[in-house]
Design a binder for these strands. Structure first.
Length: 492
RNA sequence: GUCCCCAUCGUCUAGUCAGGUCCAGGACAUCGCCCUUUCACGGCGACAACACCGGUUCGAAUCCGGUUGGGGACGCCA
């Protein structure tokens, strides 16, 4: 039985986007599930557009997601000799030919074809050039590309797709595609196949945008006398206007890095991406790494494309609401110790980290995270919405300030009085703080909520939060007393 | 334009291959109610889809044909 080997072959012309990440993930899942190997191959044969930054970004993105590789990264340009050799072999056996048509000629023909509603393929002008003419043109120094000679057969050219079923097309529909540029550099269609053959790739899982390439590459495998891998063409990810997701037209919101920078948990993004085009067949939507590997299968991948449902500049959702939902789920259910590590990085970045959180105050630190995480959407919320738990320089939101504080003039006296009473408490507990607050409310003949909600605002800066008395105890007696006494600052 | 692929709630999807248990199930989003010191979580509920037309069949979301719609490809990019 053939070894299971898959590859993820990004071209380093930009950052890793979610479509690419999803492709990598599906390949990774399949490899893991079947005890196969996953290979990272950087397809950098487009010298003009490939960049080092892009390579680094892609590798970083994959690392962040936790998609690891068994081999690579290999660089396609390191194997140019293989590609050239293959091209020569095809030329020698008459499976390819030299084409002397100039770019300008081809552009004209293409435009003419477009105008007369014909098909846009190459008209095979140079396919039947005699050896003499070819020699003459070469001697004259006319540049040429090498084209693959699509066999003239009557049947259908096709392959069996693991997701889509039988895909086929008439041989006549397939272009004599270019495999080597006029500068001697081989092109994607050829390089890709040569590398996949050399790397003994058994399964190719890629986007449906490659379907027509696959038809051509099937011909290449045949001409190169190599066994055909299994093909599986995944549905594409579209935007909410149903256009293919691309780095160019969608910007950072489709970049994996965007999710890292906006406080997403790597596994949450993987989980979301896995569900974009695949389902377990039941109602399960949260998967551990092991569960996903165990349950993943090609035949449960959808045929139709999926919409990545984000809206630019949506005030409520920075990205697809379901992605956020999944992130929230993991945020509040993951091991708090593990969460502590992730939040630590956020606090450190904001200069809010205190080493005691890892030592004598560790219990306090983890309990605090556990207390506040239920209301948060991303890791970023711990240092923004949750800043008051770790620092004194938090901002008091205007909305709760108006609603819960400024609306009640009396708070100018009430809160300092409450602060005095809290200062006297020898055991600053949930029960005691609540008893004292309610007592004071009764004495003043006001609703407890007035005190409670104004305290929340002054103590955390936020409109919403955990149970107030949990907050008091968590933030601590001294700070609470101070924050309550500061109430006068807001009645300017 | 040509070729290829696809078609279930706004979105992700189950159900389609092996037609009846589906006047279509779940999740997100939205709205309402409950819980409550706030908000969230949670619970309960509402809204909401088989693109259309034919055919096959006792019976079709499921099979077949067509139409329409959507996407992709058509590079000396990958």
């Amino acid at each position: 039985m053939r070894e299971i080997r898959l590859r993820f072959p990004p071209s380093p012309t930009g950052y890793l986007h979610i479509g690419g990440a999803r492709t990598a993930l599906y390949n990774w899942l399949y490899a893991k599930k079947h005890g196969g190997k996953l290979i990272l191959r950087i397809e950098d044969t487009d010298g003009d557009r490939s960049t080092k930054e892009s390579i680094d970004g892609i590798i970083e993105g994959l690392e962040w997601l936790g998609i690891d590789f068994d081999e690579g990264p290999y660089f396609q340009t390191d194997f140019e000799a293989d590609h050239v050799k293959a091209a020569q072999l095809l030329l020698d056996k008459g499976a390819a030919y030299k084409c002397f048509c100039t770019k300008e000629e081809l552009d004209e023909k293409r435009e003419a074809a477009l105008a007369t509603k014909g098909s846009l393929g190459y008209d095979r002008t140079c396919r039947h050039l005699t050896p003499e003419i070819v020699r003459e043109k070469e001697a004259a120094g006319i540049p040429f590309v090498i084209r693959f000679k699509v066999p003239e057969r009557t049947g259908m050219l096709g392959y069996d797709d693991e997701i889509l079923g039988r895909i086929q097309s008439d041989y006549k529909e397939v272009d004599d595609f270019v495999i080597v540029r006029s500068n001697g550099k081989p092109l994607y269609l050829l390089c890709n196949v040569v590398d996949d053959i050399r790397d003994r790739i058994s399964h190719i899982i890629r986007g449906q945008d490659h379907m027509t390439n696959t038809l051509k590459q099937v011909l290449l495998y045949e001409a190169l006398e190599a066994p055909l891998p299994v093909f599986a063409h995944m549905p594409l990810t579209l935007d909410n206007k149903k256009a293919k997701i691309s780095k160019r037209s969608h910007g950072e919101i489709v970049a994996v890095q965007f999710y890292r920078d906006n406080g997403f948990l790597p596994w949450a993004l993987n989980n979301f991406l896995a569900l974009l085009g695949w389902s377990a067949g039941n109602d399960q939507e949260f998967f551990t790494r092991e569960e996903l590997i165990a349950q993943f299968s090609l035949d449960r991948i959808n045929k139709s494309s999926a919409i990545f449902n984000f809206k630019k500049d949506d005030p409520k959702f920075i990205t697809d609401p379901k992605a956020i939902y999944i992130n929230e789920h993991y945020l509040r259910t993951m091991e708090v110790e593990q969460l502590g590590e992730l939040v630590r990085a956020e606090l450190e970045a904001e200069g809010l980290w205190n080493d005691s959180y890892a030592r004598d105050r560790k219990t306090w630190y983890l309990n605090t995270l556990d207390l506040i995480r239920d209301r948060f959407h991303t890791l970023k919320d711990f240092t923004s919405l949750g800043r008051a738990y770790f620092a004194d320089d938090f901002v008091v939101d205007e909305k709760p300030l108006n609603k819960n504080v400024l609306k009640f003039e009396g708070l100018k006296e009430w809160l300092p009085e409450l602060a005095n009473r809290y200062e006297q408490l020898s055991d600053f507990t949930v029960e005691e703080t609540e008893r004292v607050a309610r007592e004071l409310a009764e004495e003043l003949n006001i609703k407890p909520g007035v005190l409670i909600n104004s305290m929340r605002t002054l103590a955390t800066g936020q409109l919403a939060g955990p149970s107030m008395f949990d907050i008091l105890v968590t933030i601590g007696q001294d700070k609470i007393v101070e924050r309550l006494r500061n109430v006068h600052k807001y009645f300017a």
